[in-house]
Amino acid sequence: MFNFPDPTQAQLTKDGQLKHFLDIEGLPESLLLEVLDTADSFVDMSEQQVKKVPLLRGKTVANLFFENSTRTLSTFELAAKRLSADVLNLNISTSSTKKGETLKDTLMTLEAMHSDMFVVRHSDSGAAHFIASQVTPNVAIINAGDGRHAHPTQAMLDMMTIRRHKGGFKHLKVAIVGDILHSRVARSQIHALKNLGVPEIRLIAPRTLLPRNVEMLGVKVFTDMAQGLRDADVVIMLRLQKERMTSALLPSESEFFKLYGLSEEKLAFAHPEAIVMHPGPINRGVEIASSVADGPKSVILNQVTNGIAVRMAVMSMAMSGQVAERAKKLEAGE
């Protein structure tokens, strides 16, 4: 009826290269595999004595964290430094927004510092898209988590972990368990698993923690752990926030653990070779038993290691997309 601009192409150049990394949805399998392959090459490198490559030499990366996160911030910082970039960390949650400055004003100030890349974490869904729509064309935006919407680098490091343990995606049954409703990680994981060709993606949660029409994302929904975990190759547990108990979503932590917490008994429903993942930080005894978190099937710590490599991959790819686009514009005389 109307020809409104297509928003799904915001993160790609005209040639299909990454220029921002906002969201997994809409990214083709080939591009996701390129991220994983590039990340693999960085893992090999980080095992060497000299851990730096000059891919982002002379570039300035600003980490804009409107929401606190020591873990994610430090892996992004380390990733940028290993790419030889200059890094600026801004913890904005405690400064400008409290003084009533709008997000747009903050961005304009930061742009004046001539950054080449913003790594953004924000509590509002769509914040990274908004920022990408506002900055000058030459700044790459990496989404480090926006509201409940997306956490694409977390999802890609999870994909990397899965591929390293399972060798591929096309034969897998993957179960995601817990608070899907509030989870940006789950949303990005679903898109990544789907675009990489995983034939069966399952969600396991009570109805109060499942968003409306979630089946439309191409997943199977279970409310029972025994059925949902049956024969699963990968079990991804999500963090459960304490405040879910006070907002009438769940009666108690103990009831949640009893029904949906990953104990060794419940894990026995999964495939014998199954791996257990968690984006962290974990709540022992709420969504996962300590014996499982620390057990032989857990790959939770591998996830952290892979996080740096994936972030290096995404940052270098987005930067080269920006450079290529700029060169093309110069050539075209724009």
Binding site: S125, G126, D146, G147, H149, P211, R212, N213, L217
Partner: peptide, 15 residues
């Protein structure tokens, strides 16, 4: 609107 798009975008829906 609380529906598929809100679910995908992670925005709070109005049922």
């Amino acid at each position: 609107h609380e529906g598929t798009t809100a679910t995908r975008l992670g925005l709070n829906g109005i049922p």
